[in-house]
Computed example of a mutant assay.
Amino acid sequence: MNELGPAIKRLREWRGYPPKQLYDGVMSRTNYARFERGIIDTSSSHLIVFLRRLAPMLRNWRQLDAAMLPAGTAAPGAAVARLRRQQAGASQYRALAAVLAADYRHTRDPARQREQWLALAWAQRLNEPAAANPWRQRLLTDLFQQSRWFEADFQLADALFPLLDAPTTWRLAQRDLAARSDNSVAALSNIGAIPTGDLFVSWFDRAITERDWPVYQALLAAFNQQDFNEWVMLPRVMRHIYNAFAQAAAGDRQAVAALPTMMQAVAALGEPALSAPAEATIATLTAWLLPATNS
């Protein structure tokens, strides 16, 4: 039995709308009745129309069952991610924010409001990189106030990390890891969350770029506690590199002596997506933590 139809019916009846107010111009009365009884499914485009006809009156969109969201709904941050790939300017982010604000007024969908804030946070970052960023702070506050994270929260955190400095990255990373502990690896994969190992690599990139040793150490302690079920090799290779340089920075420079042999084995795999970031990280960590070894 399809549960979307009955869910739409409950919401329609709660609003006091007649069936025709939803199906008019979309589908036949007979098919709509079968849809509400759960006998047949409907397309995502039809479902979007139904939700838009209902949404303007909704006061508690966040409480809607996740099953009512149309298939293919863009993840929070998707539009901003497209602008980032295009290396857009601040004006383009502000234009996107205006579109999202109008959409939010129509749908009252919190995901649209969050992405509006994200677009404004990027516009602020591009215009005044060193200034306080109230939009970024709104998003952080929103995430920290959630007692339990769901799909949209993980997606928002993934989109927000590139805007954060190293100490704030570590703060949000701790919240992210705590939220992940409430979900299985399979559940996280099903909602499209970035794998934990890949996230650690991005978090380390921030700490290394800013040369923040306390954050580096905190991340390494947390990273070493992870028992990866992920088949990808990059997090495992990078964890070995991070530990080797931490030991070298503590005085055991022999810890990095085995890295060239490891990198030869990595290069033999013929996967630049694995070898290139590992080699770049070794070079950056050498310049930061072992400057005397530079040629």
Rank of each mutant, 00 (worst) to 15 (best):
A283S: 12
R94S: 11
G89L: 05
R236W: 10
M27H: 06
A75P: 03
W149F: 06
L219S: 13
G251L: 11
A119F: 11
W122A: 01
A222C: 12
N294S: 09
M57K: 11
V99N: 10
A265Y: 11
L47W: 02
M263Q: 13
A79Q: 15
M238C: 02
D41R: 05
A66R: 05
F150N: 03
L269C: 01
R53F: 06
M27F: 04
V215Y: 07
A166N: 03
D109L: 07
A246H: 14
N31I: 10
Q155L: 10
L219R: 10
F154N: 01
Y216S: 05
D227C: 08
T168H: 00
A179R: 06
I208H: 00
V201D: 09
A249S: 13
L156M: 08
R94A: 11
D227P: 07
L220Y: 12
W203K: 09
A74C: 01
V49P: 04
A248E: 10
P134C: 00
S28Y: 08
W117C: 07
S295T: 13
P110R: 03
T293I: 14
N243M: 08
L220C: 07
E13S: 12
E210C: 04
N224I: 09
I241L: 05
Y17D: 06
A67S: 12
N60Q: 12
Q217H: 08
Q113I: 00
T261L: 11
L219N: 10
L259H: 04
Y23I: 01
T30P: 04
A97T: 05
W170C: 04
I48F: 00
P76D: 07
T209D: 09
M263N: 02
L160D: 02
N31L: 09
N127E: 15
P134L: 06
P235G: 14
M233N: 12
A218R: 13
A221D: 15
A74D: 15
F161I: 05
R37N: 12
I241E: 06
P70Q: 01
G192A: 10
A222R: 12
P260K: 05
A121P: 00
Q87S: 11
Q87F: 04
E230G: 07
A221S: 15
M263C: 01
W135C: 00
A101C: 13
S43T: 15
N60W: 10
Q155A: 09
Q92G: 13
R136L: 00
L290C: 08
P291L: 07
R10G: 00
A276Y: 11
V26G: 09
R180C: 11
A222L: 11
S28A: 14
F204L: 05
D41H: 03
G77V: 07
F228K: 03
P110A: 08
T107Q: 08
G25Q: 07
A166M: 01
A95H: 12
P18W: 14
A280Y: 06
R175A: 12
L140G: 02
Q63H: 14
Q217L: 12
L4R: 09
V215G: 10
D176I: 02
P277Q: 03
L177Q: 14
V80W: 02
V26E: 10
D252V: 04
Y32I: 09
R29I: 10
A75Y: 03
S295A: 13
N127G: 02
V201P: 06
A187R: 15
Q226M: 05
A67C: 07
A123E: 03
N243F: 08
I241T: 05
P272H: 03
A67N: 09
N31D: 12
